[in-house]
């Protein structure tokens, strides 16, 4: 690493000499070169995906590769729409995602608040138990969770699809981290005014938690949007298949048609990528809060 890179950690600080500042600006060129190169590598698969989705299969299989397909094959997208009930699956994905996200926001913020700011017996142990579930891969839960959902009579219901996913150890932890950092004075002022803990939570704490709730929303939306197996297994209706599963079916159907598969995968990712690009500032600020602090 060149030395110029290393200094970079320093945020803009007052009191630096003019000479230094100039040298810093000069070296930003290198920073741009590095970042642009890295960014290109990061974004290349998406570009390649987009280009492939607009090519012919013969172009995909040609050596040397065809970088620009010439005549763009929009027909690949038309074929996806013809073969995949895209809008229907899109709405299934949206509704599953909304239910799970709302559920997590409510449950995780409440539990996180209690773990952070309340005192009760076994608090440490309960917290450790909640966090321990992070360490088990989700595949392990598959059959037991199905049996429980079945036992509850929740197969083929929204509750069944949402149930395991609205409880989140990570979300609870995230919210707890946030609530730990809130100064006591705010809470106490509210209590002085006669608010009960629930009122304090709703009126004082939640409004402060915007960025963390944002981060939680993002993480849950991402996970839910991309989750394929669980909705597929608890629901036995073809019309309740979410987009991720629809794409998997589509890909499983033929391994030949690379270009149409790519078009389908572009369409599956597009909603979430667009949402991200539009919301990027909030997403990133929100996630930044999920770290420590």
């Amino acid at each position: 690493m060149p030395e110029a890179t290393l200094t970079a950690g320093a945020p803009p600080a007052a009191g630096r000499t003019r000479a230094r500042r100039t040298s810093r600006h000069g070296s930003n060129v290198w920073a741009h070169v590095l970042l642009a190169t890295g960014g290109l590598v990061m974004v290349f698969p998406f570009v390649w995906q987009l280009l492939t989705s607009l090519s012919t299969n013969a172009q995909v299989m040609s050596v040397p590769p065809v970088f620009w397909p010439g005549e763009l094959q929009w027909g690949n997208y038309a074929e996806v729409f013809a073969k995949l009930p895209f809008l229907q699956e899109f709405w299934v994905s949206v509704s599953i995602t909304v239910v799970r996200t709302v559920g997590q926001l409510v449950l995780c913020s409440m539990a996180g608040y209690a773990f952070a700011r309340m005192r009760f017996p076994l608090r440490g142990m309960l917290l450790a138990l909640v966090l321990s579930i992070l360490m088990v891969p989700s595949q392990v839960y598959l059959i037991p969770q199905y049996q429980i959902v079945n036992g509850l009579g929740w197969l083929n219901t929204v509750a069944g699809i949402a149930a395991p996913g609205i409880f989140s150890a990570f979300g609870t932890f995230l919210m707890m981290q946030f609530f730990r950092g809130v100064p006591d004075s705010l809470e106490e002022a509210a209590r002085l005014d006669g608010a009960n803990p629930f009122q304090v939570f709703v009126r004082v704490m939640l409004p402060l938690a915007g960025p963390s709730l944002g981060a939680l929303t993002i993480i849950t939306v991402l996970w839910s949007w991309n989750d394929l197996l669980w909705p597929l297994i608890v629901s036995t209706r073809a019309e309740s298949m979410p987009l991720a599963a629809g794409i998997a079916t589509f890909a499983g159907r033929t391994t030949t048609d690379y270009t149409v598969m790519m078009a389908a995968s572009v369409l599956a990712m597009a909603p979430i990528l667009l949402l991200f690009v539009v919301m990027q500032r909030r997403v990133i600020d929100g996630l930044a809060h999920s770290g420590l602090k």
Partner: peptide, 25 residues
């Protein structure tokens, strides 16, 4: 008759899960 379409990759995983609970289609 309701059709339950599951991609092949997940079909037998699902069937097995259902078989465990005696909830096969």
């Amino acid at each position: 008759v309701t059709v339950d379409l599951t991609p092949y990759q997940q079909y037998f995983t699902k069937l097995q899960t259902q078989g465990e609970s005696r909830t096969l289609p």
